[in-house]
């Protein structure tokens, strides 16, 4: 963005010499018209992209207004009656919603507490591996699950934890009876958090490893001279250097706090675990897409976005006090 203004000022500096044949000073509003005329090809190129973002991002975003309507598919957005906050009032009187909200918030919290630090810790451990070949091999293995679909990962999880699965084989080996992990609600959230960490922890290290590699080595050398051991180097040099990256990723994360990922939950959930694992996205899918309660489920979606944005706003304010925020 800084480049743009720099470009503009340098452009106005050369304007007199370049376009001296044009005596009348241009009105500022015409700048855009002239830019289109001169670089029309750029506008032609970007047109499909802009249409894509309007149709598939901004129109659905604007379509969120059906949360304030009693949306009827045959009357459309313009023919459906407005009902104010009725849909929001409805969801807050609805027991199912509280259950779904509690599940979503709890799993989101666990994901944040356990899932967010995991790649930071793994990156620090990777950083201590001195053998380049070992480091690269280990990293390749850790990155692999990121590329598998949640259908595959879900299938793997179900197989490993099934009655005759691998985990129960180990239990039997130690003389314990089998446990049907996927059918019992008490294990569900743990399985969700662990499988998410398993899939994404390696991939998550990439950005931290890059931040670590940009730390000036002379800092560590100085610390060694001062007698700092490895642990102190991590605490006083590596972590502070990582802090801005951690903060930005945390803020991006908190903005989507209640969005846990449809694919994972849909593929791990069974009717037996709805009580602990039914989250906003799976509920909205069933009640909205399958049963056609469009307005109520959109209200839930809007509520979800408002929570996300409020959290982002709060934490961004906090972040600005110490370091820098997203804006």
């Amino acid at each position: 963005m800084a480049e743009l203004s720099a470009d503009r000022t340098s452009g106005s500096g050369t304007k007199e010499t370049d376009r001296s044949e044009r005596p009348a000073p241009r009105k500022p509003g015409n700048r855009y018209v002239e830019n289109v005329r001169k670089h029309w090809m750029l506008y032609v190129m970007i047109l499909p992209g802009i249409l894509f973002y309007i149709i598939f991002k901004y129109i659905p975003l604007a379509g969120s207004v059906i949360a304030f309507q009693n949306f009827q598919i045959f009357n459309g957005i313009f023919g459906s009656p407005w009902v104010g906050l009725d849909n929001f009032k409805f969801i807050f009187t609805y027991d199912d919603f509280y259950n779904v909200l509690r599940n979503t918030a709890l799993i989101a919290l666990y994901q944040l507490v356990f899932g967010f630090p995991a790649p930071i810790i793994l990156a620090l451990l990777f950083n201590e591996v001195r053998l380049m070949l070992a480091k690269r091999t280990l990293q390749s293995l850790f990155y692999l699950p990121h590329f598998l679909s949640w259908v595959v990962v879900g299938g793997v999880v179900f197989e490993l934890l099934s009655n005759q699965g691998f985990v129960n084989a180990i239990r039997e080996w130690f003389g314990y009876g089998p446990i049907l992990y996927m059918q019992e609600s008490r294990f569900f959230r743990t399985i969700v958090v662990i499988s998410a960490i398993w899939k994404e922890v390696g991939w998550g290290t990439i950005i931290y490893l890059a931040a670590i590699s940009s730390i000036d080595p002379s800092q560590y050398e100085a610390a060694v001279v001062d007698g700092a051991n490895k642990w102190k180097q991590v605490i006083y040099i590596t972590l502070p250097a990582l802090f801005p990256t951690i903060l930005i990723l945390f803020l991006l994360n908190i903005g989507n706090f209640l969005e846990l990922g449809f694919d994972q939950m849909f593929n791990l959930l069974t009717p037996m675990t709805y009580s602990v694992g039914d989250i906003i996205e799976t509920y909205v899918y069933r009640a909205g897409v399958l049963q056609g309660q469009y307005s109520v489920t959109t209200a839930i979606g809007v509520f979800q976005s408002v929570i996300g944005f409020t959290l982002l706003w709060i934490f961004n304010r906090l972040a600005r006090k110490s370091e820098q925020g997203l804006w």
């Binding site: 991002k57 659905p60 975003l61 469009y294 982002l312």
Partner: peptide, 13 residues
């Protein structure tokens, strides 16, 4: 940052 909710996206498509 501002993701459209699932249902309006579904209805649009």
């Amino acid at each position: 940052i501002f993701n459209a909710p699932m249902i309006p996206f579904f209805l649009t498509v």
